[in-house]
C-alpha cells in the first residue's frame, strides 16, 4: 500500500514536471509570438480605446423651439461643421424651401416657413460639409407644429380646423382671451425650458459607434474570410 501511495505521488510529481515543462515551452512560444501579436493588439486597442473620439461623419440634428427650428451640424465626435451649407427640403418632393450656412459653432436657425406649416410638411434638413461629407435629419411636422404660437399660425391660409381658433360666444370673450394668452405664455415657457432637453434628445437619437459595433465588425471580417478559406480548402481537397 505504501508503495502504491509512493507510486501515485511520484506519478503525480511527474505530471507536475511535465506540466511545468509544457508551460515553459508555451511561454517560449508566446514570447516568440509576442512582438508580432503585441503590434497587432496595439493597433486594435488604439481603435477600441479611441472610440469616443470618432471622426468623419456629419451628424445633423434639429429641433423646434417655438416657431424657429434650431439646426446643429457636427463631425463626430464634437467638432462643429463651420460654414456648412444647410438646405431645408420638403421630404416628399425634395423641393428646397430655404438654404443657409452654419455659424462657427456649427449652428443654424430659421423661422419655420409658412408653406411648411400650411401643408404640414416633413422637413429634410441637409448639412453639407466640405469634401463630400454630408448628413441629414428628418424633422416631422408633428414635432414642430404643436410648439408654434397661435399668432404665427393664424396668417397661414389653409388652417386645419383643429388649430383654428374656435368661434367665441360674446359673453365668454374675456375668459377665452385669457385662456389664449395663458396658453401662449405657457407655450413660450415650455419651449424655453424644453429647448435644451430637445437638443439633448435629438443628439441622443443619433447613432454613435459603440464597442459592440467594432467587435461585431471584426467578427464579421474574420467570419467572411473564414468562410472563404473553408470553401477554398474544400476546392483544394477536391482537385
Amino acid at each position: 500500500m505504501l508503495e502504491r501511495k509512493f507510486k501515485v505521488q511520484s506519478s503525480k510529481f511527474k505530471v507536475g514536471a511535465a506540466h511545468r515543462h509544457n508551460f515553459s515551452l508555451l511561454i517560449g512560444k508566446l514570447r516568440h509570438l509576442n512582438k508580432w501579436a503585441a503590434g497587432f493588439f496595439l493597433l486594435l486597442s488604439f481603435g477600441i480605446f479611441s472610440t469616443p473620439a470618432l471622426a468623419h461623419r456629419v451628424l445633423v440634428f434639429a429641433y423646434a423651439e417655438g416657431d424657429t427650428i434650431q439646426v446643429e451640424g457636427k463631425f463626430v465626435p464634437n467638432t462643429p461643421v463651420r460654414q456648412g451649407k444647410v438646405m431645408v427640403l420638403d421630404k416628399k418632393t425634395d423641393k428646397v424651401l430655404l438654404t443657409g450656412k452654419t455659424n462657427d459653432q456649427g449652428k443654424f436657425s430659421f423661422k419655420i416657413p409658412a408653406a411648411a406649416t400650411a401643408q404640414k410638411l416633413d422637413l429634410k434638413i441637409v448639412v453639407e460639409a466640405a469634401m463630400g461629407h454630408q448628413g441629414q435629419w428628418l424633422l416631422k411636422a408633428a414635432s414642430y407644429l404643436p410648439g408654434m404660437k397661435k399668432a404665427s399660425l393664424a396668417p397661414a391660409p389653409a388652417l386645419s380646423p383643429a388649430v383654428a381658433p374656435t368661434p367665441v360666444a360674446p359673453g365668454a370673450k374675456t375668459a377665452t382671451v385669457d385662456a389664449k394668452m395663458l396658453e401662449e405664455v405657457v407655450n413660450q415657457a415650455l419651449a424655453r425650458q424644453l429647448g435644451p432637453l430637445n437638443e439633448k434628445l435629438a443628439e441622443m437619437a443619433v447613432h454613435r459607434t459603440t464597442l459592440p459595433d467594432i467587435l461585431g465588425g471584426l467578427g464579421y471580417i474574420l467570419g467572411f474570410f473564414g468562410l472563404w478559406a473553408y470553401f477554398q480548402s474544400k476546392r483544394k481537397k477536391d482537385t
Binding site: A55, T79, I214
Partner: peptide, 15 residues
C-alpha cells in the same frame, strides 16, 4: 476596419 476609428485631432475637420 478599425483604423478609421483612430481619430487624429489635427486640421480643420476631424480626420
Amino acid at each position: 476596419f478599425v483604423a478609421s476609428l483612430i481619430h487624429v485631432p489635427v486640421g480643420p475637420v476631424g480626420l
